[in-house]
Amino acid sequence: MSDYLSATGLEVSFGGLRALQDCSFTVERGRITCLVGPNGAGKTTIFNVITGFLRPDAGTVSFQGTPLDGMKPQAIVAAGIARTFQNLRLFVDLTALDNVVVALPSQTGEEPLAAIFRPLHVARAQTRHREEAMQILQHVGLAARAGEFVRNLSYGEQKLLTVARGLATGAELLLLDEPASGLSASALDQIMDLLRRLQTEGKTLLVVEHNTRVVQQIADEVLFLHQGHLMARGTPEQIISDPALAEIYFGGVI
């Protein structure tokens, strides 16, 4: 077993609330790992810690053997980890294509002086970047909507676009926060199909998901989080058939 991504002893408190308590887990390369647990279990907090948006009070995260402690979000993206947000956070006044182009790494002309003094060079690079972004859109099934402003896209299309934006960074580990929530049946199939395709292309996915049907269909492994602590891990079947976990997961609802 390789330690592709490993978290050890993570502690995060918000005032009196302990969001993560001695939280340790690993994610293996090339697999789809689903992070499940009741609301408030700390799933999004884990994403924030891994991607450098939140500094843990204690504990460490390593990626391919390198600790990510104290690294800024942009450095972590450069190291190969990108994320999506539950509330999407797309640039709604930009086109679908531009949302993807923005996320492509290190572009010529991101500096104002290069933009002014080497306009032709920048223009050529831009053409290349647009083609690259177009291929990513094609890949997620949004090529036909490239020129559309984000606010005119359907919710399902917007979800696909967040994945496209993550892919544009070139990251090999994608953290997806509820990619399937609130989707219609056909949009759900589309996104599950996309996630499986990404896996076959060598991406590793860590996915927060509530929908047990989705988890059963895509997950290789499930991490069950409860009160900021990893409570169980196993195959989807093992986790779903465990009555104690079902009690925690559904207990509050039923």
């Binding site: 993206v77 006044d93 182009v101 923005v102 790494p105 002309g109 500096e111 002014i116 831009q126």
Partner: peptide, 29 residues
Amino acid sequence: AFWLIMRAPFGRLLRAIREDELAVAAAGK
């Protein structure tokens, strides 16, 4: 100069920042 800046990736980056700084940081910028 303004026109060149705004049509370059720098202009796009600034527009994106105006909309959502956090998302720009998450995109590695």
